[in-house]
């Protein structure tokens, strides 16, 4: 087991390193000089030199990278060039908001995806299955922002049922208003993962139910709820892998959705950082999001052998 954890970790570390290199390179890949934004308009060569030195741009690139990485690891992601505050102070509240919305969307998509998938897998070839499969395909094929806009147009503008924009004003505790603000962006966010999870749950469940051991369970007179548990445990490794990937995508999708709904999360932050060419914020946010994505998959990998005992051996 320990060996398995170490081996998975050996996969994860190079990926994280790669992510950090990509993030760091943004600075140099982005068109234009990253310093123009902070440079006084008619700076003398001496001032330019001094600013470069203060940002560490006089050193060779690999050294710059190591310094940047070391700082990032100790929580110093630099200064936002727009807000002139530490990037971390910008990212943390945005992160909290994103996770709040993402958790809501994840909850919706797990509930919807697993529930609909199981329903479809158990009522194969019937009307429900057709309906669910069709819904899943639509869910997967329609773009985020379009759904977001349609939802806003119908539920917020025309019917006035739900708020269309932003987050509930700060209040003590977590109340109904917070949830009301999360419903539209949450549904928008959950749509694609719900469709994909539902389809994979359906396919896996149908697959598992065809296996011979299900007949053994029936031949031994186990009640349907116990047979169901066997089917679920057999289906879970496959489904979990899909869910892991989908949750990552969901967080990625939040960039668009947060923009459509003006939700003050990392997506919103990224969007602004791109618009204002605030490279440190861009780097920091991408680094944090990408790390989250990688760690999520790492955790999914770690969970697999608990669900399927055959995995540790391979």
């Amino acid at each position: 087991m320990l060996w398995y954890v170490l081996r998975r970790l050996a996969y994860v570390l190079p990926i994280l390193l790669g992510v950090s290199i990509v993030c760091f390179s943004l600075l140099h890949l982005a068109p234009g000089d990253p310093l123009t934004a902070v440079m006084p308009e008619f700076a003398s060569d001496q001032v330019i030199e001094q600013i470069k030195r203060s940002y560490g741009f006089d050193k060779p690139v690999p050294v710059q990278y190591l310094l940047w990485l070391f700082n990032a690891l100790s929580g110093n992601l630099g200064l936002s060039q727009v807000a002139n505050r530490p990037v971390l102070d910008e990212i943390v509240p945005a992160m909290v908001n994103t996770f709040q919305l993402a958790a809501f969307g994840i909850g919706l998509s797990l509930l919807g995806g697993i529930g609909l998938g199981l329903l479809a897998g158990y009522t194969r070839r019937l009307v429900t299955d057709r309906a669910i499969t069709t819904t899943a395909i639509i869910g997967v094929s329609v773009p985020h922002y379009w759904v977001g806009l349609v939802l806003i147009a119908i539920l917020a503008v025309t019917l006035g049922l739900l708020p269309a924009m932003g987050k509930a004003p700060p209040s003590p505790g977590f109340g109904l208003d917070d949830i009301r603000h999360m419903i539209l962006p949450g549904i928008t966010l959950a749509l694609i993962p719900t469709g994909i999870i539902a389809r994979s749950v359906r396919a896996t469940v149908i697959d598992v139910r065809k296996q011979e051991f299900v007949q053994t369970l029936q031949a031994n007179g186990l009640p349907p709820r116990r047979t169901f548990l066997h089917v679920v445990k057999n289906a879970s490794p496959t489904v979990l892998a899909i869910i892991g990937i989908q949750l990552g995508h969901l967080v990625g999708g939040s960039i668009l959705v947060e923009t459509v709904f003006a939700w003050p999360g990392t997506g919103y932050l990224l969007n602004n950082a791109i618009a204002y060419r605030d490279i440190p914020v861009l780097q920091g946010t991408i680094l944090v999001l990408a790390t989250f994505f990688v760690m999520l998959n790492f955790l999914v990998d770690l969970a697999q052998p608990f669900l399927d005992p055959r995995m540790t051996r391979q």
């Binding site: 051991f213 369970l217 029936q218 007179g221 066997h230 005992p309």
Partner: peptide
């Protein structure tokens, strides 16, 4: 009632012991 007699009155042994047992329990 059928379930109640399966396993207690009548049992079955299948041809493929690999696929006839649940792999994850």
């Amino acid at each position: 009632r059928l379930r109640a007699i399966r396993g207690t009155q009548v049992s079955m042994i299948f041809q493929e012991p690999m696929t006839a047992l649940d792999p994850v329990f």
